[in-house]
Every structure is written in C-alpha cells, then in structure tokens.
Design a binder for these strands. Structure first.
Lengths: 227, 227, 227, 227
DNA sequence: AATGAATGAGTCTTCATTCAT
DNA sequence: AATGAATGAAGACTCATTCAT
C-alpha cells in the first residue's frame, strides 16, 4: 500500500481532495477512532506493517470493514495515526519516568534507560510498531517526521542531563555526540530485539545502556587518550 | 505481498508442487539472476520494500515483467536473494577491511568502524535495503535468519578483537556485552541515517563509533565504577 | 486453470491458510452465490469449460470481477459448485419424473427416459456442462466424485425398476448389466448430442432409449440364445 | 487456451496469417512431428486436455520448448494433430479388426466390439484423449469435425453389418437406429471408463456390448411388441 | 536442427474504498 | 451508527510464441 503523505496531517485539519464531511467530534466518535487506532497497533504488531489490511484492523477492533471510512479518510491516515499514537506514548513514558526520577540528572538518565526497556514505555507491541516505522520512514515523509521528532526531543533531554552530570563530576564530554551515541544504541537495541529477540533481550539491553552511561560519565584517568 | 518463507531456500533445492525445471546454471542464466538481484536492490532502495513490484524491478533491470519467472520461483524468492546478497556484501566488506587492517586488533576494530560507514560496505543502497529488512524481519523467519547471521558473526569478530585489545592494555571488559553495545550502536546509526539522514550523517556516526571504542578500551581510573 | 481439488469441499468447511471469514449466510448472500453459480453454468455452456474465465462469468452475472471473491474461495470453487448444481438438478429431475409416473415400474422406466432427454432434466445448458464435466473428471477427483454419485444412484434406480418389470413379465435379465448398458447409452447420447447435435437429436435419442427398454424386456422366443 | 480453428487444417495446406516457411517435409522433419504428436498424446493423457502446456509436451518428447515452433504453427495445431492421430488409429484398429474377422457379418460385429475395448484400438491413453475431445468438441469446430467423421464411418459400418445379419436371420430391425444405439453405448462406456474406471471396466463393457448385439439380433417371439 | 532467452498478453486474486440500507 | 455489498484498480504469475545463436 502506498503511504499517501498528503493525508498525513490530522484529519481535522486536512482538506483532502474529495469532499468529506469532517464528522464533528462526538464522544462516541472519539471512542471509535481510538478503538480503531488501538486495533491498528495490535494488527501491525501481529502481522507486520506490510501485511496489515483494513480487514485485519477492523477484525481486531471487532467492527466491520466499512467502519473505517466513517472515522478516517482511509487506511493510510489510520496507520499514520496509529504510529503517531505509539510515538506519543513512548514520549509520554519517557517524560513520566524522568518526572518520577526526581531532580538528580544521573537518576534521570538511568530512569530513561529503564523506561526505554520496560513497560509501559517499551512493550512488544510498541516496539514492533516502532521498528516497522523505522523500516519505512525513509520512503514516507510523514513517518520520517514522526521518527525525527521523537528522537530529537529524546536526544535533547538526554544531552541536557548528560551535561549536568558531567558538570557535577567534572568530566568533560561532547554531550551532543554522547546523546547521539546513546539514542542510536537504544534504537539499535529496539531494532535488535524485534528482529532477533533471542540474542537481544530487553534486560540485557537495559544493563548495557546503564553501563554505557557509566562508561561515558566516569572520571577518566590522567593518561586517558579518548577524544 | 506475503513473504512466503517456505521458498526461502535456493531455487535449485526447492521442490515446488508443480515440478519446476531445475534450470541448468548457464553463463547467461547466472548473469540474468545477478541482473535481476541487482535491480531488485536498486528498486527496494528507491521505492521501499513495501512498494517494490515485479514491474519496478524488471523496469530497473531493463527487462520485461515475465522474465522473473524464468530465473526465480517468484517475486518472494528474488527479494530474499536480494537481501541475502546485501547481507553477504556487508559481511564481505567487513572481512576485507579487517584483512586490510593488518594484525593489530585495535587497528582492526577501527577498520571495522570505518567499513561500517563508508563504501563499499556502507552505501545508501545497501543501508536502505538493510533497514527495510530490519523492519520486516520480525514477521519473516527467512529475513530474521539473515539478520541473525550477519550480526552474529559481526559480533563475534568484534568481541574477539576487543578481548585482545583489552588484554594488551590490561583493561578488563565484558567483551560480549561490549560487542553487543557496539553492534547495536552501529545498527542504530544505520537505521537513524536511513530514517533521518539530516540528523545522522555517516561521518558523524563513524566518529561516534571510534569514540565509543576508545571510551570502552581506555584505561579506567582507580575510582571508576563501571562494570 | 488448475482444478484445485483440495478446495472441492464446501467453502464453509474448508480452512484455507489465511483465515477466511465464514461469511454468514444472509439472504442476499445466498442469492448472489446462486446468481454466480447460474452465470457460471451459462458461461461454461457458452464458451466451454476450458475457456471460462472469472470475467466471462461475472459478465454473464452482470457483476464486476471482484465479486467472486466475496462469495467463493476462488474460481475453482465456483466452477465446482456450478457443476454440482447441474448434477443436483439432473438428479432432482429424474426423481421428480419417477414420482410423477406413478407406481408402475414400466411407466417409471420410460418416464426416466423421457426426463433424460427433455427439459427440465435435459437442457442444452445442462448437457453441455455435464459433458464438459465428463471430459475433465479423469483428472479431477472432485469432478469424478460428482460424476460417480449421479450415475450410481441413477443406475440403482434403473436396475430396481428393471428387476420389477422383468418379474412382472416373467423375463429373466441381468438387471445390473442392463442398467449399466442403459446408463451408458444415455451418457453416450448426451455426449453425442453435445459434440454432434446434427447427427444425434434428443428426440431420436429418446426413441432409441425407449426401444432399448422394450428390446430388453420383451419376452424372448423359446430358441433365444441371449445371456 | 483458445482452440483457434482457423489453423485446424493440415500445416502443409494452410496459409496462416503470418508468413511461415512451410518447412519442406524431410525425413527428420516427419520424425520430429511424429515425436511431438506422440508426446502430446501422452501429455494430454497424463495431465488432461486443459492442463497440457507446450512445456509439458516438449518435456514428454525430450526436446526443448522452442522446438514446437519449428514443426507446427502453434500449440493448437499440434493438439489437433494429436487428436486426429488418435482418431485415425481408432478407425484403423476397427478396420483391421473387421478385416481379421473374416467375411461373416456377425463375426465382424463382435470383432468391432472386441476392438472397441481392447488394445490397440482401445488403450487408456487413446481413451482419455478421446474423452477429452468429446468434452471440448462442442466449442471447437475442428474437434467436432473429428468427432463426427470417426463415428459416422463407424456407424455406417455397423449398420451395414447389422443389416446383413438381420437379413441372414430373418429379423427385421431399424439398422440405423440400432447402429446409433450401439455407437452411443460404446461412447458411453468409453466416457464412463475414463471418468469412473472403478465402476466401468473394459471387460464388462465389452461383455455388455456383445450382449446388446445378441439382444438386438435374436429372433423375436410372435407376440413381441418392440418397434 | 535445436536451444533457451525474452516477451507480453491474459488470468486470477487481493484489497481499499464507496455507498445504500 | 454500523454493516456488508459491490466495485475496480493493481499486482503476481503463467504460458504460448518469437528469435538469435
């Protein structure tokens, strides 16, 4: 199916080509949209992004095929909303973890690590949707945008905390580069777990990321040569 | 399209229901298979794994649609071969880089890093095919197998060299975990570059990975807390 | 096209690889299935079993090509149902004729003959579908089964009535063999009419079959040598 | 595949639309044509008329796919020749049987019966090709013509012999009708054996046809009522 | 003479979408 | 609000045929 990026915007805002009544947002309307989005997430996770069909989604939602047309301009929009939803929940989980970790930047970093590999931030469903997204983003501006914004804000937060820890410890680091290394390692673990869950387990991934932070933020020896 | 994993094996071995001519491997036959595989790689890279069609491949190859049937069981087998080909070339490039780097394990590690982000190992085409693979492997045993084998051998090589460097330097590391961290960081950079080529550039990725190695293998301070 | 005999069973029972909605039998659903089956019969009769296409059927039914997928697993299933339908109607017509003929076995035999060459049992459409079936049954277990069951029951009924007439008249016959001769003669006339309608007309065929019955069931001379 | 009846004529005579070198009949040329025709017969018998492909024929002949174009205008012509060949051999076998039976018309009739259900006239291969023909003749003028001519001559011969026997015995029969009954019974047995070889065996068929002749040609009682 | 490489038309099937009820 | 009937476009695959070698 072709990701039609013109309808990537929110349904409410978009003016699609063929006139379509905007269906004012009632209580039940929101509920159905949500039902379908959740079903889409489950369905992607189950059969894969390529194999999802309107049929498989509506079956997962317990509704008939035709319903989708009442709440979304089409399959593409629904899928996009589903991915957006996952991205939003990932971001929310991170923020919540940071908030819960208290003010200490070191604690916060490790809280982010934990949140990155344990529910509700990391779940099999979310991870597989996310990885499906990464595998398609290159050819879909809308998905790429979702990808960019999640990591951009994640990365910024990480860099900020790293800077503070480094300052606390008197360590000098290139925070931007370190944050980049960190986010891509996390990304790599997500992808790895999805593609090869035997070799890459969430627990090990979490431990590895904690270790990376410590490696990065430990005080170097006098003779240290690292850049 | 459904990745039918039963036909993942080489065409020569598979016995489909309808007897299929074993197609003696002639010179031209091999050449055409190669042509089509290359075209498939280009086509995946151009339009994405989901959007590749027999037509897009054959157009890229400069042949008519029907030709695929002469050299492959079907589209699925061709795509699989294309992905295998990419994986093989990635592996070959790594091995060649190591060989070229000479015997020193430290040089070898950095050579692998370089090869991971510069041609011929890393090319936009290969990277995008690879990332398409990672986004689908979860739902396709054949793709998952390709994924596993590439990283498994890559990881082993890395761990071996890391162990040797650590011994040389008198540093104690958990080589397996370090290798895991390393491979997933590389994977994360590949995915990141593909999905967001502006934020993540191959050069920066390479620098970051070199830095990671140094971080990992530098002599720690007496007070260091890392595992 | 290949007659896939694995899907010869009713759609409701079959479990195909991809789960297929059992399609609740609604009023309109039954009606459409029937429409398509009738159209398939017309289409076979018109262009021949080998030349029937999904398109020719749907055109005959006045629907679009895609509809077939809603009501049948595929073309094969539809064709099989069409042939089953013809066989069923043939059997029904015979039974109805026998019932209408009253209790006398001699009357019943001739009623069967009449029904075998006049509507509604025998119609050009039914005959041509039937003959198409006979020409393919050898290579299709499902069609062969249809063939077998029709004639088996036809033959049994004939043999029973023949036995009774023979008893009435004090004639000794080998009823099974006679029934076999009879059914194959009828079959031969059907085939003959279809392939060469000029030489073999239904009227003549009917007369011939009546004559055969009389020949068989007449009282023999004292010197008769027939077995 | 569409039976293109315009090329039903012999290759040598026909002027097909696209210019085609007539390929003068050399020794080897005739041999190859014959090879291909035989292979076509085997192939029809094996996979059915509908499923025969140029590939299956050429494989059966031990040649490559392209060869067919050298000796026939196309698949259709080859199939037609194959069917013609079968019809010719059936006719030849009947004539040979009659000749071998000597001058007595009664012997001749039974010789025809025997030849109709035993090799070389009747063989599984020939029978299945023949039945495939009967199932398609309705929609193909060329096949219909083959059908007609075989039975026409068969029927004439039978009628002639029946007349002679009837005269010898002083029995009055409608020879044409009797011949028709006879040929259609034979046809019905052929079809029946092909479609349901368990219920209808050649031996039983032969016995039944002998019985039919005796039934037909026995001296009737004074009170006989048959027409 | 024979091969097999290449073509492209034709067919079945899937599926997103529309719409009357 | 929800259904499911119907459409038609798009894709994969088969296969007869052509033709250079």
């Amino acid at each position: 199916m072709r990701m039609d990026d013109r309808i990537g915007e929110r349904a409410g805002n978009s003016t699609t080509l063929r006139a379509r009544r905007p269906r004012r947002r009632s209580r039940i309307s929101d509920e159905r949209r949500r039902d379908l989005i959740d079903a889409a997430i489950r369905s992607i996770s189950e059969v894969g992004y390529n194999e999802v069909t309107v049929q498989s989604i509506c079956e997962a939602a317990g509704f008939s095929r035709g319903l989708i047309g009442h709440y979304f301009t089409g399959k593409d929009e629904l899928l996009l909303e589903a991915v957006r939803q996952v991205a939003r929940e990932l971001g929310d989980a991170m923020r919540a973890a940071i908030r819960a970790a208290g003010p200490d930047p070191y604690d916060r970093l490790h809280a982010v690590v934990r949140a990155s590999f344990t529910p509700p931030g990391f779940t099999p469903e979310k991870a597989s949707v996310w990885v499906a997204l990464t595998g398609t983003a290159r050819w879909s501006p809308s998905l790429a945008e979702i990808y960019r914004s999640l990591w951009r804000s994640y990365r910024q937060g990480i860099a900020r905390q790293m800077t503070r820890v480094a300052e606390q410890r008197g360590v000098s680091i290139d925070a931007d580069r370190a944050a980049l290394m960190f986010t891509q390692m996390v990304e790599g673990f997500w992808v790895g777990w999805t593609a090869d869950p035997v070799a890459i387990e969430p627990d090990a991934a979490e431990v590895a990321c904690h270790a990376f932070l410590d490696l990065l933020l430990r005080r170097p020896t006098a003779t240290d040569v690292s850049a």
